[in-house]
Nucleic acid binder design. Structure first.
Lengths: 225, 225
DNA sequence: CACATAGGCTATCGATCTATAGCTTTACGC
DNA sequence: GCGTAAAGCTATAGATCGATAGCCTATGTG
């Protein structure tokens, strides 16, 4: 019952269990004992895999933020109207988050990003918001979206995302595609100057995001294959 | 520097400071020492005003939930179309929450409602969601709202509310009326079968909610007047 | 002016938390 | 088949947490 070689299974399970515990009780409300016990090892074993309690949170945040930054950058650079790019971004973003093996509900709850060891993650989060705002601004400037306050839309999107992952609970969502489309449609219905264009935008968005998915058919699941 | 009579000032300030600290660091991440120090007293003095750390959270939750339950019940019983009542409810609800002296951001974050001492509050939160769902269902059944998944709308509303109060930060919002109207408009644009009806609905909603405000012109601010 | 009480204080207990030290066992490369 | 390193363990240090005990003082009422 000890030392089973470098297979990375415990580490991978710790990330998953920690994300669920953070979602259920918050970062501060979860102890390293809780995480270790959920994995089935003793508390000090936690420190064989992570330098600190904050380090595991940083890794979970990066697993969410780094791909998300890639997605919003892709959406900003794509060749299509702002409304189509916004729809495609929301669609792919929500689908990707719902497919994560981690439970991201608790990662942005308390202002944990102000912890001194998480300045990198705080910066990335800031960039995310800025780039999303830029995308919405392009839509408003082009006249495709109504003259709505950009920051409000940004917050509305964030709220929708958080609540959708909150709803899915711990297990990966049963229908990520459906929920993702619902979120994208919801936001665009609420912001489009001409809502009757939604069907066309959905079509274009589907074409665009399918083009994104083609080149990068990357495998997932670190450790357990 | 001790014993200043029953003025209730410290208790009132403790509620405000605790709500801010819960928002910033979560319930578990906030110690009774933190709250006491923010108020300017020593930690044991906290227990002269609250039976436990959980008790202060229960009181903050009730300050939000009890009036909110009243508002949703009023909206369900009002004489108007479902869409108008939904708009009026969202409008008055967001405005009321933004006017609260407390920072409600942290109250619903971690699954703190599962604490054994908070079963009453958990029940009320459950009722809130149920009644909101009912109101949305009426709108869909009447054909005024599109055939959207009720639970999704419920979650979208919750996400919007939480993010709006998150955005306002600690201080009472500078323009609660404006934000409240933005939220109500946003949700109805996203769910109305015929979005061109929004101006009419806004008008009717304004009439309806002004009627609600008339009979109950209650004063606020317990303690400090 | 006496005195009851609200509301402050110091001191401290027992539990729990993060993290480290140091030992032991298993798996894998050579 | 032997040694190294990964990965487990026990024990424990040091800090902090929620909560209680017991004392002191200012205030308001008679």
């Amino acid at each position: 019952m000890a030392g089973r070689g470098p297979d990375g299974v415990t580490r991978h399970r710790a990330l998953i269990e920690a994300s669920r515990l953070f979602a259920a009780r918050g970062f501060h409300g979860t102890s390293t004992r809780d995480i270790a016990e959920a994995v089935g090892v003793r508390q000090p074993t936690f420190y064989r895999h992570f330098a600190s309690k904050t380090a595991i949170l940083a890794e979970l945040l990066d697993a969410d933020l780094l791909p998300a930054l890639k997605r919003i950058r892709t959406a900003l650079a794509a060749e299509a109207g702002p409304a189509v790019r916004l729809h495609a971004y929301l669609h792919t973003d929500v689908a990707a988050i719902l497919r994560l093996p981690y439970d991201v509900r608790g990662l942005y709850n308390d202002d944990v990003l102000e912890l001194p060891d998480l300045t990198d993650q705080a910066t990335r989060r800031e960039q995310m918001h800025h780039l999303t705002t830029t995308l919405v601004d392009q839509g408003i400037a082009s006249g495709e979206l109504i003259a709505i306050e950009t920051d409000f839309v940004q917050h509305a999107i964030t709220g929708l995302l958080l609540e959708v992952v909150r709803e899915r609970g711990a297990a990966p969502s049963p229908a990520p595609e459906k929920r993702a489309l619902e979120v994208a449609d919801f936001v665009l219905r609420a912001t489009l100057a001409d809502p009757t264009r939604l069907p066309d935008i959905r079509q274009e968005s589907a074409n665009l995001s399918s083009r994104w998915n083609q080149p990068t058919a990357a495998p997932l699941s670190p450790g357990v294959s």
